[in-house]
Amino acid sequence: MRTNSFLGILWHTIFILTVFILIFPIIFALGTSFKPLQEVYNNVLNIIPIAPTFDNYIGLFERLPMIQITMNTFTIATVVTIMKMLISFLAAYAFVYFDFKGKKFIYFIFIASIFIPFTVTMIPNYLIMSSWGLADSIFGVILPQISDAIGILLINQTMRSIPFSLIESARIDNISHSRIMIDIILPLIRPQLMSTGIWFFVNSWNEFVWPSLMLKSVDSYTLPLALQMFISAEGGTDLSVAMAVSIVTMIIPLLLYLVFQKYIIGTFTASGIK
């Protein structure tokens, strides 16, 4: 509406500044990844390299099995996402459309699990996975990541936005639950599910702590783990290569975000906590 234009300019400036602070590091990473290390140390302020080079990337792909590492990251993120979506979807369906003894209590227990800090579960999970022989494998990383109650919470909210009458009339027509889920609910909330899926995918992709406990050999590493290989107390941090790894790590999540941002922001904006 008719906003005080002084206020408008002031706030636009603040917002632009904020955006700059948030986005600058990414641009900085990009520029640094194309600089030779000597330039990184001696040409600190230039974002655009004076002597740009692909060496960091080439060396990276030569020295580390980057393709394998990226595939590991991708596989883990995909499986985790699909499993999380599936079991959360089923669970949410049960919570939204059924009434049963102890429902409130059980729901409470699941939501409560969000409040359990990872330090409480990390040691036993580590021991379980080791004893199942999954210590250095992607399954060892995948399985515990699936138990994330945020999935139930998010899909719960999404499902509640569907008009109940639709489901009710379907039940009256004796349509099976699977059909309801697939033919009625799914199409209605597809954008939200997609956004939630992307959110899960990216979070798993960027996950560091749990994979670092589980994965020990370079062949099973994920991208964030590959990154910490370039930070060495003894030999010094090779910032230029570290930035190259960072960029490689960032590409897929950023691409997903930028391509689907309308959906993603839309979903988060619409769901809210009402």
Partner: peptide, 24 residues
């Protein structure tokens, strides 16, 4: 429909297992 869901699940697990066994 539920068969589809189950087979999708199995496919994913198979994929993951393949990726894993390659390394080992």
């Amino acid at each position: 429909a539920s068969m589809k869901l189950v087979s999708l699940l199995l496919l994913i697990l198979l994929l993951a297992a393949c990726g894993n066994s390659e390394a080992s």
